[in-house]
Design a protein around this nucleic acid. Structure first.
Lengths: 128, 128
DNA sequence: TTAATTTGCTAGCTTTTTTTTGCAGGGAAG
DNA sequence: CTTCCCTGCAAAAAAAAGCTAGCAAATTAA
């Protein structure tokens, strides 16, 4: 079946994403291995980037997320792990994150806000 | 080495927690297996409850969380996976940005959420 | 009591993850 | 050209996940 393509798709696979981030930051496989404190071996990272690992451990993804400075949840999603977050993926909204970055949300608050957000979007939808 | 104790510790292990929830709900291993649509075999669940699995897949934990009606995050935490949640440290930084970073909020939504957050914190706050 | 069913559990096996090893290609020197 | 050192990968090996089958104790049925 369809395994992988290296074209620039919208929903990148985990491997494509990891490769893209690493090369963008001009890091070598071994540099990443060091940066993760040897938690992720260079050989294993190579396998990840080539889509040869279906279900990597979240700990691995967490290490990579830290080193790459990308959101942990992003990697979890791309790894195919279900996330409690709603999967709204509409393309034309702006990332208004800055405000919430200063808010220090608790887990409860986060869940409540997400629910409320889902409610907002289900009722007062202003865009297709 | 230290394996486990069956006393009632504060931070229950994943196995202790799963066993407790299941017995509380009076479900058998096979009933859970069915309830998860055979995603979690009864034998494997038994191993989980006895702490014989170090890193279960999040998919498994998600199935169990659904069936048991417990928060997915809780199982992830008990499984030893780092979770971007519940930082009660008010004085610290680290906001819950990641989740909302993927949400791509519009300005309107952001304002609404901020209002709702203010409401949450003014009413039923669980904050010291 | 005995038979049938249910329950938890484990041994054994397959599959997948993760580690280890090492190798071919490509420079940069020497 | 040879040597040395990266860099990315492949392939083998080790370890762990996860499933099937089936056993032994308990429960229920007859």
């Amino acid at each position: 079946m369809a395994e992988k393509r290296e074209d620039a798709r919208q929903p990148q696979t985990l491997g494509e994403f990891l490769l893209h981030v690493r090369t963008t930051k001009r890091l070598t496989l071994r540099q990443v291995e060091e940066a993760t404190n040897r938690e992720v071996s260079n050989a294993y990272l190579s396998q990840l980037e080539h889509g040869r690992i279906a279900k990597p451990s979240p700990n691995i993804l967490y290490s990579l997320a830290s080193v790459y400075a990308v959101p942990y949840e992003r990697l979890m999603e791309k790894a195919g792990y279900i996330i409690e977050t709603s999967k709204r993926d509409v393309g034309e909204k702006h990332g208004r994150v800055a405000t919430f970055a200063n808010e220090n949300l608790t887990t409860e608050e986060e869940e409540d806000l997400l629910k409320y957000l889902a409610f907002l979007r289900s009722s007062g939808g202003s865009k297709p």
